[in-house]
Amino acid sequence: MSYERCDDMRWKKFLLILVLVAITVWSMAGIDFSIKEIVSGMGEVIRFITVDMIPPDISSLFDLMQPLLDTIYMSLVAVVVAAVISFVLAYLASSITTPHPILQIAARGVASILRTIPDMVWVLLLVPAYGLGTLAGTMALLIAGVGLLTRSFAEALDEVDKGQLEAVKATGASWLQTMSRAVLPQFLPQFVSWSLFGLDTNVRSSTMIGMVGAGGLGFAIQSGIKLFQFEEVTMAILMTVVLFIGIEMITTKLRRRII
């Protein structure tokens, strides 16, 4: 009996490995991918980076300041507005605070659609309406941000201490009063913390969405490549990396302080 089960396990394992190998072969064939391609491709890439991109063009620092600031501005404006919208949506989406189950399902559904569609796609869809530039970028970050923050906020609201809620309800408080006097004080630190996380995410996304025409550092990188100004591109990439690290350091430090 135990021998049979062992045999069965081995058989399953063998089948799994066979499937994985098959998928790998299919993938490699489908995209004409081989070790030779990787090696020659990487060789070409290393040549490109070392010859064409280095050294970075330090003199472009000044020109790149405005795109850098735009990236920060877009991220911040988007996260503030997204936080306000998500605040309302999350109250509908959390099982504890929702006034009606149908509203809860609707809010969760909307948030999950907004979150699952990548922000790059949102930019593409928004550019026809808002034109190229920071406006479309900010709106795309806003939409993706609402998706992210609504879910995070709703999860924070789900964890609100039910005893505190009960106590305020028992005084004869209305729904609005209970939300404001019992839920809000517990939720506020989470709200700020997740919004800071959203800012961090936005800064990362905003350099990416710039590449499809939404302004900021991503746009500078994209146009630098098109104009063959590769050393300036390197400078922009370095600034991106510094910006990421800086923002991440600030937001994690602040988040640790709050909670």
Binding site: L176, Q177, A182
Partner: peptide, 16 residues
């Protein structure tokens, strides 16, 4: 003060 909420107008109470 939360004990007073039941006696108050909903919005005034919510705003504290």
């Amino acid at each position: 003060l939360n004990g007073r909420l039941g006696y108050m107008d909903s919005v005034r109470g919510a705003l504290g």
